[in-house]
Design a protein around this nucleic acid. Structure first.
Lengths: 219, 219
DNA sequence: CAAAAAAGTGAATGGAGATTCATATCTTGG
DNA sequence: CCAAGATATGAATCTCCATTCACTTTTTTG
């Protein structure tokens, strides 16, 4: 007399469906954030956009801030990746720094609303925590690049961590104004500012002697 | 047959009392913000701290965000003033820039919690608007200083507005980490960072030729 | 002192929106 | 097709606080 009490079990199909819904929720939320910022989105909006019921959201995320923290993480992670790719590409540190700054700026200039949300929009503390990690990620990218430049003798800095933080801050600040949803700065002007910023940073990091790139060590 | 319907009229004493209460409310609110940040304070707390009833708050301020916007404005204004004083003092632009950066940093290092609230705490949009003005005020201070330095031939910048924004951003960023309520950086370390930051900015702004301060124009 | 006008009081109200949960629907292996 | 386990649903609930307002107290002048 066997008793079978296991009739339902998690299966590949089930898991896939689950993952799919989760994904749809995140996508919907990202879309809404990109359109109106974190502050404007409420759970019922997300549900509608993802075409699920409000309660379903809570079957996939324990609470609103956690859902949005994940949205932030994904969006921010993508941004950092793009910048990192350029910062770590082969080439001369100076031009890579310029390239990274331009890349950051150009991507921000498209998707302004999202960039503003990631960089400056007032947000819930849980999301703010993600933002700190986001900034730290950029900081790391620039710090490595600076270190590399110093090793190569083309950069100088008495404290690379201050230099990298300064660059991240400068990027954020010099762009907050231009990217604020109200500001009407066009893409060209933003690009010009990015170039000026890159020049500013390069001068701050320049080693005394012109880059010895094409010179053989004298010793 | 005269009819006297005016019996009560606003008087100096009344006005003084009114101003006093208003002031007490602002002070109480400022104290609470300095202790725990904007986010943690609620109207009933302010009332208790100011020793008035909740309703009284609304007799002096139309709504919470307006009350706190004023708190922000006052606190931030004081900070800017201190920095401006140094930036505008007589002396060589380079050392004034260094002085301003150090001043900013030192004041932030005391009253960390307040500095964090002014610079980085996630806040209500109405307060965020004040923050933008706060940053713009710093921006103006530095822009003027940069312009002056350029006129004197000791600074160079292809776009002073980008340079000033970068400095403001660098200040905020290089200090947000160190000032975050959790961070355990001591005053000495913060001071060292400030010096590094000043050096970074000075290099970014240095005119090619060493300052011609003590030279007579060649022409 | 009285009447008029303000200001003060703080318990009650109200609204916004996140979260819950009783119910309905779906999935799975036998 | 069934029973059991999961999941989806969305209207109702709940919570948190800012804000209000009926009532009390204070202030002023005649």
């Amino acid at each position: 007399m066997e008793i079978h009490i296991l009739v339902y079990r998690e299966t590949e199909l089930t898991q896939a469906r689950r993952a799919d819904i989760r994904h749809r929720i995140l996508e919907a939320a990202r879309g809404l954030v990109a359109a109106g910022g974190f502050g404007a989105v409420q759970m019922s909006d997300v549900a509608r956009a993802a075409d699920v019921a409000t309660g379903t959201l809570y079957r996939h995320f324990p609470a609103k801030p956690l859902l949005f923290a994940e949205v932030f993480r994904i969006a921010a992670g993508a941004e950092v990746e793009h910048v990192r790719a350029i910062a770590e590409a082969p080439g001369e540190p100076g031009s890579r720094l310029t390239g990274a700054i331009l890349q950051f700026t150009r991507r921000a200039a498209r998707g302004r609303r999202l960039a503003y949300s990631l960089i400056a929009e007032p947000v819930d503390p849980a999301i703010e925590a993600e933002r700190l990690m986001f900034r730290r990620a950029y900081d790391t990218v620039f710090r490595r690049l600076i270190q590399e430049g110093m090793d190569a003798g083309v950069f100088f800095s008495e404290d690379p961590s201050v230099a990298s933080a300064s660059i991240v801050g400068a990027l954020a600040e010099a762009l907050v104004g231009p990217l604020a949803p109200e500001s009407g700065l066009d893409a060209e002007a933003v690009e010009a500012r990015a170039h000026a910023m890159a020049a500013f940073c390069l001068r701050a990091l320049a080693a005394r002697r012109p880059a010895p790139s094409s010179q053989l060590p004298a010793s």
